[in-house]
């Protein structure tokens, strides 16, 4: 039986329309105009217990809006959602006790006090037995390397350190469903890696179901076997991550800096940009080594780098086959 079930879920926002300039501001005093923006358009999906699902899409695609509806922050305009057999829009305490929403800008700990004090509040709110609480804190301290952090006032922690203690606090009650919205936003690579490992380990240990949005492909690759791609409020892909990569990211980019570029750069692949001594070419994965070798032979190369396409580019390719409705 699915833990998360979404049926024709739709969210429409009514937003004011106003042109720029003083005259428009004055006009809007007397004649306010609104338009309706359909952020999420009749989406359907289910998530089974223990799954870790990546929820992908560009900014404004409807990812966060969907997560907010699934956690009861937003009321759907139409359709329905079910999380752990509860309607999240009712915000029942029984449901809230069993889920967690972690956003990249989470700020749930008391700024002036050590995180350990705020953890105590979590213990009281979620009625965590004292012995379990102690062992969970101990475990989180080890997994997230919180030893030197939890007894320092939160305001004295760096962004990455604060995110670690925030995540620890959010998971103390061992939520059965975990919604993560850009949990590694703004963190350095080491910190991202640690948080990814922690989430994976936590899910494995507790059997928690995880739904994750991230612009960092590394997060998705490390955690998710399945991804759902949303664009313009519609789901355009729901399936294995490996299929998505094969289907839409079957290329890499080669950026080459040479004393003099060859005039026929298109012979290496699809030219993405070319300026003076630097060119970037999109090359099919299978041909990357051969093309790089040819470049080194053909030109006096000063520098060459091979990169995975950014997640936005991969998704953009997915979107090409899904033009927005007007």
């Amino acid at each position: 039986m699915p833990v998360v079930s979404v049926d024709s879920l739709t969210k429409t926002f009514r937003v004011p329309v106003r042109e720029s300039g003083l005259a428009a501001s004055v006009r809007s005093l007397f004649n306010r105009e609104f338009r309706h923006v359909e952020a999420v358009k009749a989406i359907d999906f289910t998530i089974e217990p223990g799954e870790i699902v990546g929820f992908l899409g560009p900014n404004g695609a409807g990812k966060t809006t969907t997560l907010k509806m699934l956690t009861g922050l937003l009321y759907p305009t139409s359709g329905s959602a079910s999380v752990l057999d509860h309607d999240p829009s009712l915000r029942e305490r029984e449901l809230l006790k069993r889920l967690a929403l972690i956003m990249g800008n989470r700020n749930n700990l008391n700024w002036d006090l050590p995180a350990l004090d705020s953890y105590e509040l979590q213990r009281a709110i979620y009625e965590i037995p004292k012995d379990q609480y102690a062992s969970r804190v101990e475990s989180f301290v080890e997994l997230l390397d919180l030893g030197a952090l939890i007894d320092k006032p939160v305001r004295n922690l760096s962004l990455g350190e604060r995110m670690k203690v925030e995540i620890g606090g959010a998971l103390l009650h061992h939520p059965e469903v975990l919604f993560l919205d850009e949990p590694t936003l703004g963190l350095d690579v080491t910190m991202q890696q640690r948080i990814r490992t922690f989430i994976k380990e936590h899910s494995r240990k507790t059997g928690a179901t995880v739904m994750l949005t991230s612009h960092y492909m590394a997060d998705i690759v490390a955690l998710c076997e399945r991804v759902i791609v949303i664009h313009h409020g519609r789901i355009i892909y729901d399936g294995a991550l490996s299929n998505l990569a094969d289907q839409f990211a079957g290329y890499k980019t080669i950026t080459v800096t040479a004393e003099q570029l060859t005039p026929s750069m298109e012979s290496y692949g699809s030219v993405m940009s070319v300026a003076a001594q630097v060119a970037t070419v999109r090359v099919a994965r299978a041909e990357v080594s051969a093309v790089a070798r040819r470049m080194l032979q053909d030109m006096s190369v000063l520098d060459i780098s091979i990169a995975e396409p950014p997640i936005e580019d991969v998704i953009a390719d997915v979107f090409d086959s899904s033009e927005p409705e007007t």
Partner: peptide
């Protein structure tokens, strides 16, 4: 009991935080 306990802990945190700003 749950609410009373949460009140107690939250009030204690409020007190602790305020003591930072004597």
């Amino acid at each position: 009991m749950r609410l009373a306990n949460a009140y107690w802990v939250q009030a204690r945190l409020g007190l602790q935080a305020q003591m930072q700003y004597r």
